[in-house]
Simulated assay, not measured.
Amino acid sequence: MDRAWNFSAGPAALPEAVLRQAQADLLDWNGSGASVMELSHRGKRFMELAAATEERLRRLMGIPANYRVLFLQGGATQHFAQIPMNLAPRDGSADYIVTGVFSRKAVSEAAHHVNANVAATSEADDFRSLPPRDTWRLDPSASYVHYTPNETIRGLEFHDVPDVGDVPLVADMSSNILGAPLDVSRFGLIYAGAQKNIGPSGLVVMIVRDDLLERAPQPIAKILRYAEQAKNDSMLNTPNTWGWYLAGLTFEWIEGQGGLAVMGERNARKSATVYAAIDGSDGFYRNDVQRSARSRMNVSFVLHDTALDAVFLQESEAAGFIGLKGHKAIGGMRASLYNAVSEPAVDELVKFMRDFAARHG
């Protein structure tokens, strides 16, 4: 069966090598006579896999020794609520930078557990730009500052790490983690849903500084407390063993590709190729995001005539492309260029876009 050119925003493409290894292991993983999904998470084989997976991620990202790596469940949305429970007293405050739908959702969920202050937002611009730094109203006594480095729906990205002083910086990196090198020491907590650059949905990878685990500001169930998960090596309850295993294969694949420096260079080339096709289309395609904030992971674009949207999607699917329909909140198209999306796939997309414009322009 031919594989599609997959530009889905999430769940998204996985490296073909990872899928083939998982396929080969499905009935007999690691000589166990069973799949990884059928074995105890407390057995020797899985415990070794868990330790190796964490160590590989630490190497890839250069995670300092004073940070814990957690493999959790619930998706990033659950942690919109769980983070303030763990990091802030109920009568305390936290600052939020709102640059899209997901950071806005983070504020909404956090507001049940902390005074969630919108310290900056670009909502008035319909999230087409980043709020200028001189407009940020940060509280030096806030428990943390939360932001979303890459917003998948509009395709808006911070290309640097904001300086927020001594307040811990918390980042929802669901859509750009592992996409380029990163100085983890700039953050208090990083979390990411796995379904874009890590593995299948249902797993959340969290990197949290030790001192933040010592906070116990709100009375919450043990299962929700990050310190308890860290104490139990992310196995306070039965974890997502399948997701953990696939994450490990993905980390191994990234290492084999040359690591995050290579991923960053490749992702920059891929996004530049698609943006060049949009900008060079004489108005047939258009991207409305501030150029300095354009995402390397999610390239959104509209056609000059919305009547052509359905035709574009129909013809692109017939040509072997999937996942190009834009989010319902803004319409149009979106090409997600995560690590597993190859440069040949991007070249094929651009070739199709140019051919479509020539035929329908």
Rank of each mutant, 00 (worst) to 15 (best):
R225I: 01
K222S: 15
G248W: 00
T241F: 06
L236S: 02
N240Y: 07
G248E: 01
P217I: 02
Y245S: 04
K231I: 05
L224A: 11
P239S: 14
L249W: 00
I223Y: 06
L224V: 04
T238S: 11
L246E: 00
K222P: 02
A221Q: 10
Q229F: 04
L249A: 03
T241Q: 12
Y226S: 00
P217W: 08
A221E: 15
A221C: 12
I220S: 01
L224S: 13
F251Y: 15
K222E: 13
L236D: 03
A221Y: 07
Y245V: 02
T250N: 15
W242K: 13
Q218G: 12
N240A: 05
A216P: 04
G248V: 02
T250Q: 06
P217Q: 06
W244N: 01
S234P: 07
I220G: 01
T241S: 10
Q229W: 10
L236E: 03
T241H: 05
I220F: 03
A247T: 08
A221N: 11
T241L: 12
D233W: 07
E228C: 04
A227I: 04
P239A: 08
N240C: 07
T238F: 09
T250Y: 01
I220T: 07
Q229K: 11
Q218R: 08
L224E: 12
N237T: 15
G243L: 06
P217M: 09
M235I: 05
T241M: 10
W244P: 07
F251W: 08
P239L: 09
P219E: 07
S234I: 02
G243Y: 01
W244E: 04
W242I: 10
I223Q: 14
P239M: 04
K222M: 14
A216H: 13
I220A: 05
T241E: 04
